[in-house]
Design a protein around this nucleic acid. Structure first.
Lengths: 163, 163
DNA sequence: TTAGCATCATTGACACGTCAACCGGTAGGA
DNA sequence: TCCTACCGGTTGACGTGTCAATGATGCTAA
């Protein structure tokens, strides 16, 4: 394992072999974690994490309803993505869409009973899975460190922008 | 924000509100990081990270060729996923598939010149993006901590198995 | 007034992943 | 021998995500 130290010249260099190993472990493990959580949720409640995010937002909204674009920005999705997803959720009866009374071109998304029940049944197993797969896997110090790492990475993403 | 401490009874409890905040920040940020890296790679080289993984494996293999199932296990993919992906890569001329001479029912995957060139052009920008978005975002201590967190999470995933 | 222009939402085309079914061939055991 | 079971690989159906284009509707400025 020859050392590929880029070092010197303080400029824009490539990662070292060690940094790359850490990177791969980190990104692959977090992906695996997401995917495991997804399949746990699916198995426990027949919902995807996307469904869960939508249902969570709607169940917390007053009237259990939100405008489509409001919902999109609340959960941080592109409108196109939300529109596709709502179409699938509507086919399964989890939500309903209707024209918004107040805003002419607006669409109002409503939580149905089926959706509310599905969400109610999903939340405890989902939180339990988060506890088992994340919280219980780490020491308290590591949880704090994970939070700080996420904050630092997020800051970097934000400052670099889409570039 | 009422404290939802589960604590006591040392049993299988739900995460606290604080743990949940950390969890959300962590999982959403790592997802955003993956997605940003994906779009950087796409913009720099018209390759996806999936393409990159396949091309990396093939370019390191002797003869720049591998059996399909060997490739699948090397990069940790299900065979079905690889088969679909190879179909798309083959349409773009990045790889070629042919019957394996030695193993009757085996398929051999070959790196084409187009694929090798695409990979060669992609690697430096990709490594640079990893440096900018991950390595440079964290302190050396945080990189070490990230590695340890990944190891701990991975261990947890492995011990829990598919359950 | 009307020609742009931004905004809200949907749509279509396509890439990507998973799951389950399938096919062809090889290997064991009745 | 024949039946079965596995193995390598492909396929189809479907959920999911992005991008670019399209409607439909208001706002604004010549």
């Amino acid at each position: 394992m020859t050392d590929t130290t880029p070092g010197r010249r303080g400029g824009r260099q490539l990662p070292t072999a060690e940094e790359l190993r850490t990177w791969r472990g980190f990104i692959e493990t977090t992906a695996a974690l997401s995917s495991r959580l997804e399949s746990r949720l699916q198995g426990d409640s027949a919902l995807s994490t996307g469904d869960y995010a939508v249902l969570l937002a709607l169940s917390e909204a007053q009237g259990q309803a939100m405008r489509s674009s409001e919902l999109a920005s609340h959960i941080g999705w592109e409108r196109s993505r939300l529109s596709h997803h709502l179409g699938r959720m509507e086919r399964r009866g989890l939500i309903r869409r209707q024209e918004c009374a107040t805003v002419p071109r607006g669409a109002e998304v409503l939580l149905t009973k089926v959706g509310a029940d599905a969400f109610a049944g999903a939340t405890v197993p989902h939180l339990r899975a988060i506890r088992e797969l994340f919280v219980d896997a780490l020491t308290p110090d590591q949880i704090v460190a994970a939070g700080e790492i996420a904050t630092a990475l997020r800051a970097r993403l934000d400052t670099l922008g889409k570039g």
